[in-house]
C-alpha cells in the first residue's frame, strides 16, 4: 500500500458521439457531447468527496467511469497507485471487489426475485466464496453494519416487503459485503423521505469510520454534500469549476457558477438573507460549447477575457481551487446595456 491518494484521476474524458440528424447528412464532421472533459482529481484514503452539479454536468458519468460501468474515452485512473487498465477478467474482478457502487433508486436496483440473503450473497459467490457458513456469516455481518438488526429478521424478506430506507440499507449491505476500499454513491438519498434520509447519511458516515471506506458521493443536493463530505468538486458541462473543502466552498464560493448554485438552494429559515445572483436559467448547449469558460453565456460576471479561460484550477483560498480567471474581488456584475 502506498501513501499517495487512494484514487487519482488524471485527464479523464468521456465523449459521446452525437447521432447525425438528417440535415447534417452532408456535414462530415462528427459531433460529440463532451460529458467529461479532461478532469483530474484525487481522493485521499478515508475521505468523502462530493461531486456536485446539475444534470448534464458529467458528475454521474465520472462516478460510473470510476466504477467501470463505462469506459473512458481517454485518461488514467489510479487506484492505490495502480492503473485501472484491467484487461484480463481476473483484473477486472479484483477491481470490482475493491470499488463498489450504490445507486439512487432502491426500488429498481434490487432484484425482486431475490430475498435479502440472496441479494447480498450473490457478490460473495461471484468472488469465489464457496463455504456456506462463511457466506452466512458475512451476509449477517454486513446487514448488521448496515443497521438492519437483528439480521435474521431480514434475511428472508423480499424487496417488496421492505421500506425505501430498508431497501437502500440492503443495497449498502450488498455494496460493503466484499469489504471494498471505495464506495461510490450516486444520489443515494434523493428518493427517500426526509425523515429517514438522515439515517442513511449517518450510516455512510459510520461506514467510513468503521471500515475506513473512501467515498465519492454524487449529488445535486449541496445540503447533503455539506453534511457528509470533506471536500466538494463542482462540475459544469464536463469540467470541474471549483474544488475544495466542502464547508469553505459553500460558505465562500469562488467560481461564479458555484455562487449561483449555492444561492439557488432553498433554505428553511425565514431570517436567512441570500446573496442573490441572477442567472439565465436556460440550459446550456452541450454540443456547441463556447470558447474558454463554459459558463460564460450564463455568467453574470462574464467579460471578454473569459473566452481565454484555460480551465486551470487556481488556488484562491487555502486548498480551494477555482477555474475562474478572476478572483472574488475582481468579479463585478456585468453591466446591462
Amino acid at each position: 500500500m502506498s501513501n499517495g491518494p487512494l484514487i487519482k484521476v488524471e485527464k479523464l474524458t468521456k465523449y459521446y458521439p452525437v447521432r447525425r440528424r438528417l440535415r447534417r447528412l452532408f456535414d462530415r464532421e462528427q459531433h460529440y457531447v463532451r460529458a467529461v472533459d479532461d478532469i483530474s482529481l484525487e481522493v485521499e484514503r478515508g475521505e468523502i468527496l462530493g461531486l456536485a452539479g446539475e444534470s448534464g454536468s458529467g458528475k454521474t458519468t465520472t462516478g460510473e467511469i470510476i466504477v467501470r460501468l463505462q469506459e473512458a474515452t481517454s485518461g488514467v485512473i489510479l487506484l492505490d497507485g495502480h492503473p485501472l487498465e484491467a484487461d484480463t477478467r481476473a483484473d477486472r474482478k479484483r477491481f470490482r471487489r475493491e470499488v463498489q457502487m450504490i445507486f439512487q433508486d432502491p426500488y429498481e436496483t434490487l432484484n425482486p426475485r431475490f430475498n435479502v440473503f440472496e441479494t447480498i450473497a450473490e457478490p460473495l459467490r461471484i468472488h469465489g466464496v464457496r463455504l456456506k457458513s462463511e457466506i452466512a456469516r458475512r451476509v449477517s455481518e454486513s446487514l448488521e453494519i448496515a443497521e438492519l438488526k437483528p439480521a435474521a429478521n431480514y434475511l428472508h424478506r423480499f424487496p417488496h416487503e421492505l421500506s425505501g430506507g430498508q431497501r437502500q440499507r440492503v443495497a449498502i449491505a450488498r455494496g460493503i459485503v466484499l469489504e471494498p476500499k471505495v464506495l461510490i454513491a450516486d444520489e443515494p438519498v434523493s428518493m427517500l423521505d426526509v425523515s429517514i434520509r438522515a439515517d442513511i447519511l449517518n450510516l455512510l458516515k459510520r461506514l467510513r469510520r468503521r471500515m475506513g471506506l473512501t467515498m465519492i458521493y454524487v449529488s445535486h443536493d449541496l445540503a447533503t454534500i455539506k453534511y457528509l463530505c470533506d471536500r466538494i468538486a463542482v462540475m459544469y458541462l464536463g469540467k470541474i469549476v471549483e474544488i475544495g473543502p466542502a464547508d469553505e466552498v459553500i460558505a465562500y464560493p469562488q467560481h461564479p457558477y458555484t455562487r449561483v448554485l449555492v444561492s439557488s438552494v432553498p433554505v428553511a429559515d425565514p431570517d436567512y438573507v441570500r446573496a442573490e445572483v441572477s442567472v439565465d436559467d436556460a440550459p446550456p448547449d452541450q454540443i456547441n460549447l463556447p470558447e474558454g469558460c463554459r459558463f460564460t453565456p450564463r455568467c453574470p460576471f462574464a467579460q471578454s477575457d473569459c473566452a481565454g479561460c484555460d480551465h486551470r484550477l487556481l488556488e484562491r483560498r487555502p486548498k480551494q481551487f477555482s477555474a475562474c480567471i478572476y478572483t472574488e474581488a475582481e468579479l463585478k456584475p456585468r453591466s446591462i446595456p
Binding site: 425523515s195 449517518n202 445540503a223 447533503t224 431570517d271
Partner: peptide, 30 residues
C-alpha cells in the same frame, strides 16, 4: 420555522441538512 410545536415538526427539523448549518451537529432521523 422559528419555533414549531408538534413533535413531528421538531423531528423533521433535526432530520434536515442545511447549507447554512455551522454547528456540525449530527442529523437525527425519525
Amino acid at each position: 420555522f422559528r419555533a414549531p410545536y408538534h413533535p413531528y415538526s421538531l423531528g423533521l427539523q433535526n432530520a434536515f441538512p442545511s447549507i447554512t448549518d455551522i454547528t456540525g451537529e449530527e442529523l437525527v432521523s425519525i
